[in-house]
């Protein structure tokens, strides 16, 4: 029997080459590279000028490549948190509706493949592309940092960065799934792009405002307000991701969100070890993965139930 998984690979292969050759991908990559170089350049300047100051004690100089900022250009961490969703949406928003509009979908589904290959191959291919891109850019930053400051990362730093890059992939995959979901719901690619961007904008700009208002209307106690704000904020994938990466890449930050006196009492000002950091963000980690999977699962089910008519 001619290999079935083989046809899956054929599909993934085609999807990857479609992505890599598409203009939207090239544009987003160019955007990411440009901003990355800009931010790296300014950070390297800061580090060179203040090396002595920064490098006092165990200060994770290498991680500064990803987190430091001169106030003008955002750091790499912020950059990915901002451009990552755009990358995910750009890769996902027209995956299904464009095939529907071109009439290719009924021809493909008339081939002897399980119906879900159509959507899983698209998801797999886009995730591979994102993974490769994120890791290449991340390693590029590390490599350039290594060359210019001449100080290699410690194993801990290296692992932190790798985990950070992996998490970024999952975060972007969430927005990819959202894009795919809308590409199934909406017939027009433009509508689905707008809908995805609207959600992204909602979470980046409006959500924190709404959370503040809600928290303040629910309670008068400042500690409680703080607590509520943090809990509500964590419903946003952006906030989850930001918190996660901050903890991972800034070991000196010891707690998340609002601190209570109890938490602060007896805290010794020292950096967290990698496993301590991971323990702290483990709930975020699972929440982010769950969000991506749920989003994809909804898209998957919706696709499987749709009738295919050219």
């Amino acid at each position: 029997m001619p290999g079935f998984s083989n046809s899956f690979l054929v599909m993934v292969d085609k999807e990857i080459s479609d992505h890599v050759k598409s203009w939207k991908f090239i544009i987003v990559v160019a955007l990411i590279l440009l901003t990355t170089f800009g931010s790296l350049y300014s950070i390297l300047n800061i580090i060179r000028e203040n090396a002595a100051l920064i490098n006092k004690g165990d200060n994770f100089l290498f991680l500064k490549l990803f987190t430091a900022t001169d106030g003008n250009l955002p750091n790499f961490m912020t950059l990915i948190s901002f451009l990552g969703p755009i990358l995910g949406i750009a890769l996902g928003f027209d995956l299904v509706n464009s095939e529907r509009n071109r009439g290719t979908i009924s021809r493909i589904l008339a081939q002897p493949i399980p119906r879900d290959y159509f959507i899983t191959s698209k998801f797999t291919a886009a995730v591979i592309v994102i993974l490769l891109l994120v890791f290449s850019v991340g390693f590029l930053v590390m490599g350039m940092g290594l060359l210019s400051i001449g100080l290699p990362p410690t194993l801990g730093e290296f692992l932190r960065i790798c985990i950070f890059l992996f998490l970024s992939t999952i975060y972007i995959a969430f927005w990819l799934s959202l894009g795919i979901l809308f590409s199934i719901i909406f017939e027009q690619a433009a509508t689905s792009a707008l809908a995805s961007l609207a959600i992204w904008l909602f979470f980046t700009v409006f959500y924190s405002m709404i959370v503040n208002i809600v928290a303040q209307s629910l309670s008068k106690n400042p500690f409680q307000i703080n607590h509520l704000t943090v809990i509500l904020s964590r419903l946003s994938p952006n906030y989850l991701y930001d918190e996660l990466t901050t903890i991972l890449l800034t070991p000196s930050i010891r707690t998340l969100g609002g601190l209570s006196f109890q938490q602060l009492q007896g805290a010794i000002p020292s950096a967290l070890s990698l496993d301590q950091s991971l323990l702290l963000v483990w709930p975020h980690f699972t929440a982010l993965i769950a969000a991506s999977l749920i989003c994809f699962a909804v898209a998957y089910l919706l696709f499987m139930r749709r009738e295919v008519r050219a």
């Binding site: 001619p2 083989n6 979908i105 009924s106």
Partner: peptide, 26 residues
């Protein structure tokens, strides 16, 4: 099956489209 309004990947050549279909048929 030849659907009405059959569509192809228009950025690819006829040959590439055919080879792709063949690939899906193992």
């Amino acid at each position: 099956y030849l659907p009405d309004q059959v569509g192809f990947y228009s950025q690819r050549t006829g040959r590439e489209n055919l080879v792709y279909t063949a690939g899906l048929n193992g």
